[in-house]
Design a protein around this nucleic acid. Sequence first.
DNA 1: TAATTCTTTTTGTGATATCATTTGAAAATG
DNA 2: CATTTTCAAATGATATCACAAAAAGAATTA
Lengths: 234, 234
Amino acid sequence: MLKNAIILPELTRTDDMTVQEYIYLRLRKSILLGRFEPGNPITIRGIAEILDTSPTPVREALRRLSTEHALKMLPNRRIVVPQMTPERFKELILLRVTLEEHAARTTLPFVSNRLVDQLAALDERIDQAVIHTERDILITMNQEFHRSLYTANPDQVVMPMIESIWLQLGPFTRIASRHVEELYVVDHHKEILAALRSRDEAALITAIAADIKSAVGHLHADALERILGNPVLF
Amino acid sequence: MLKNAIILPELTRTDDMTVQEYIYLRLRKSILLGRFEPGNPITIRGIAEILDTSPTPVREALRRLSTEHALKMLPNRRIVVPQMTPERFKELILLRVTLEEHAARTTLPFVSNRLVDQLAALDERIDQAVIHTERDILITMNQEFHRSLYTANPDQVVMPMIESIWLQLGPFTRIASRHVEELYVVDHHKEILAALRSRDEAALITAIAADIKSAVGHLHADALERILGNPVLF
DNA sequence: TAATTCTTTTTGTGATATCATTTGAAAATG
DNA sequence: CATTTTCAAATGATATCACAAAAAGAATTA
């Protein structure tokens, strides 16, 4: 049991945060960083013991994550990270492209020069993370880059759905990174920034799609089959 | 308190269903049918009393719905149906078009003639509901029509997100229907069916978008402003 | 030795108790 | 009369308890 304590990333708990929320955020971060093994059963009481709380707030946090399809509550009451299949993976990537293209399109009118500068600064930190091969920081900053862009639109309703896709892809990036040295070999942030500066919607959409696909582009269908076909072995 | 009992639609509870799940489904149905007033505070204990259960499963059901953005848990711990604004409404419709177009595109290869026949049968029941002005049945069947189409793709991951959009639009259709006699004056199901029969992707996309927009097409911007601008008055 | 049955332990679910926060109305104040 | 203050009731959050279902071992059987 205590072994699993290691996989939960740190997270400082502020005073206004409920226990449920704290647990939710911590588990969520853990999933996004790919620290949960698909198929591995998760127990309410186990998490509660690790985090030194009662089962009640853990139950709610887990149910919340399962509503976002980051976890799956099986009919036999077991809770697991969903198993990835080549077909589901393809659907997730396709939908991610659709959602982020939509988000980019609707946020563009709200993009200020100031925001572009902030994104450029974020991109520099991402480059640094790549150089120093800081995987967790890279993943977090990359998401922050995309999130900052899309939430420029104050009325957007798509961000939670994009987050759900990220959560569903999280466990897979872990598995995939055992088979390829660098997952984010090349990002397309420079192109995204250029398109934003010139307020070029078509170029922006192209760059966003390229950025998403580049993360998994070198994973061809047969490689995916090989990786996902025998997930138990890893 | 007992007054609110009326707004909850009937739902038979099967044996394999947990109390939490039953409450979730019943509240969800209620929201989809637009029976909750935006801004109206919802209490855990109030729902628990109506459904004659303890607060625990109600809390989980409500948190689940708030994760889907059907409800909103405010920082002051109050639970409400989110207020609709013209801007948010526009974003929801735009995203719904994007999502359902995506769903239609990716499900098309899985569409069988048998499914098209089933959809045609559903469409007939919808026409009957329109004739008899059975509002609840109309809404339910219309969603069933779309859901049946999109879930033909066994690996689809977009359906939960579409359901989330429906949930967020639910309370509004209630408000809107007080201002226009018929919400679904004309649907475009016949065009959808024709496009499906000929496996014509472009025509299908066009028909889907038209179907979604027709439901709100006659609500012009200024009419929306008028309806949504003073939601308290209705 | 492998499969099956039985028993013990673990687990998820729901109800209840407790506590701090919030609400809303009465009381007090200006 | 309007505003602020006070305070009892209601509410959400968490821990704990009880129970039934499931899982994991242990014992038994073929």
